[in-house]
């Protein structure tokens, strides 16, 4: 069996205490929420931690607060959120995106905070210590070369958190807490286009909450989410499409189309959105707009499936997700 290396476990009971411990311990410490990403990474030794700070007993991180906007505590489990009435009725595409994560058992453990902070993935990296020794590691951990693109100066590991593209499309914001204070930034600003340094948050910051604006709910936006993966459960995506459209008088006034699991960050398919604005939601306009997503998707050979094919079918799935948002036909499902 793969074994967890030894570490010190801290279990703070308030957010302030958690922040204090985290800043005190420095980069050798890591927080853990559900552990469904951290524990495998520690076992495979592609992440290291001398101290692990559990957020399980921090009361401020729990709960769903629904008013005009809806605020989701970082420690809410994915299983609770996919069924939370505030999400199912007002942000159904997000509930669906969350319900597409991993498997029912893992969703009982995994949290929203852990999901937005999910480590980027790559088939050269998500491997045991012994395996990675046989490729002399790679740039993301302990090595020098990126095996996906050996002459590239950067890492192309994939941001595969399924909540992320939908949160970006919904214009959600994230509240970050640290011993230096709190700040709230758009989820879109949390991510960086870099497989190694993939979060814009400082290491001493804890994700406390995710806020969903009232103007992004089902009364205001037409939304849809699609996830492409090999199997109907357990698998990470190899492409996801998050769509949020605002319409007035039958024409699109605002559009967000965000692709997930295809780059190191949730990448907006800007050309698609631009092509939609001002257009009616018809089969033709959607097809024409979706064609523009091809350029937004440059998949690399570090996930399941043929990378060329992933790029090739991106417009097809963008089109289908747009059609689902437009109510032209039922969503294909995740």
């Amino acid at each position: 069996m793969l074994r967890l290396p030894a570490f010190r476990l801290r279990q703070p009971t308030s957010l302030a205490e958690a922040c204090r411990i985290l800043s005190g311990e420095g980069p050798a410490a890591r927080v853990v929420a559900g552990g469904t990403d951290l524990w495998p990474n520690l076992k495979r030794r592609n992440q290291k931690a001398s101290t692990v700070i559990s957020l399980a007993r921090v009361p401020e991180l729990a709960g769903v607060r629904a008013g005009g906007e809806v605020r989701l505590g970082a420690m809410e489990t994915l299983a609770d959120l996919e069924r939370a009435p505030a999400l199912v009725t007002r942000y159904p595409a997000l509930a669906r995106a969350i319900g597409s994560i991993s498997s029912p058992v893992l969703r009982n453990l995994g949290t929203l905070g852990g999901n937005v902070c999910l480590d980027t993935r790559c088939t050269y990296y998500d491997q045991n210590e012994e395996w990675r020794r046989s490729i002399h590691y790679c740039m993301k951990a302990e090595g020098r070369i990126c095996w996906v693109a050996p002459s590239s100066p950067r890492c192309w590991a994939v941001q595969s958190a399924d909540s992320a593209p939908m949160l970006v499309a919904l214009d959600a914001r994230v509240r970050l807490a640290s011993s230096a204070g709190e700040r709230e930034i758009p989820v879109a600003a949390l991510y960086r286009d870099d497989g190694i340094d993939y979060l814009a948050k400082r290491p001493d910051e804890i994700v406390a909450e995710v806020a969903l604006p009232a103007e992004s709910d089902a009364a205001h936006l037409r939304t849809a989410f699609f996830k492409l993966r090999r199997r109907g459960s357990i698998d990470f995506g190899v492409l996801s499409v998050a769509v949020a459209l605002r319409t007035e008088g039958g024409r699109v006034t605002d559009a967000r189309v965000v692709l997930g699991s295809i780059a190191s960050f949730p990448s907006p398919a800007g050309e698609v959105a631009r092509a939609l604005i001002g257009a009616p939601l018809t089969t033709e306009s959607i097809r024409a707009a979706a064609q523009r997503s091809r350029a937004a998707a440059t998949p690399m050979d570090n996930t399941d499936f043929d990378p060329r094919w992933r790029g090739q079918v991106t417009p097809v799935y963008v089109e289908r997700t747009l059609r689902a948002a437009a109510g032209l036909d039922a969503a294909d499902g995740a």
């Binding site: 088939t123 998500d126 491997q127 395996w131 046989s134 070369i145 199997r231 109907g232 698998d235």
Partner: peptide, 28 residues
């Protein structure tokens, strides 16, 4: 996986794991 020969001698199983070695689940 065989890495570029100029840089590496590696020849490794691409995904010796139950998650990434794909086989059917009940869903399929």
């Amino acid at each position: 996986r065989r890495l570029p020969k100029a840089r590496s001698h590696a020849l490794v199983h691409k995904f010796p794991s139950v998650l990434e070695y794909k086989s059917l689940t009940f869903e399929e």
